[in-house]
Design a protein around this nucleic acid. Sequence first.
DNA 1: TAGATAGTTAGGCAAATGGCTAAGCATGAT
DNA 2: ATCATGCTTAGCCATTTGCCTAACTATCTA
Lengths: 115, 115
Amino acid sequence: MAKHDPNLNLKFAALSDETRRAVVSRLARGPASVSELASAHAMALPSFMGHLSKLEAAGLIETTKKGRVRYCRLSADGIAPVTHWLAEQQALWTSRMDQFDAYVAKIVKERTDET
Amino acid sequence: MAKHDPNLNLKFAALSDETRRAVVSRLARGPASVSELASAHAMALPSFMGHLSKLEAAGLIETTKKGRVRYCRLSADGIAPVTHWLAEQQALWTSRMDQFDAYVAKIVKERTDET
DNA sequence: TAGATAGTTAGGCAAATGGCTAAGCATGAT
DNA sequence: ATCATGCTTAGCCATTTGCCTAACTATCTA
């Protein structure tokens, strides 16, 4: 993955709203139709549809139309780049703490050998 | 953690920009001064400072002033709520896949017993 | 065919965002 | 005291965001 993946912008931005995160959580439990998803949110349908559009543009969900009903489901691996990026930072951070721990252990040993 | 944590909005929003993610990655390797951080980004200093403000408001970094230099470092556990929320969704999704796997295994067994 | 349901499109509004320049303040160096 | 460095504040601009209502289209039901 490129160091600066513009899609990461979209994914984090898509998740920066509690309504959209609620949709992701709901879909983590299984697919649902737009009406079903919308019924849990007190907002106008076009506004809610706007949220779904952002999630889809970010690659986090997929939608399909069957007759007059649009079904939504999480995209397989849609969230993976987000999780990967966070794991990278965690690894960098942990590596630093490991170095710090090693440094402290070294200092302690030096003090112990002095006595 | 509340189901809808407004701070999660701020954290995801703070990470929805590649400049701010670059800052987080840099700080994962150790603290740095504002000038040091800014030197890696082609933008006016006040604009860059705006990014640091958003990261700080989101609780992802902490800054301290020593003389005329402002130092930045990652907040311990600042990113934890983001990681936790993602882990929750992963668990929900995985739980669904487990149910699906169990269902498939049951179907396969039924077909096998028929022969 | 008419009515109901599910979603889509268009336009609007206030607030937020991400950048800029200019000017200024605080601190350190000479 | 003056100059340099590091940051801070203020105001501006274009774009995006998150919501709204109104009107419309597509599909299903009776």
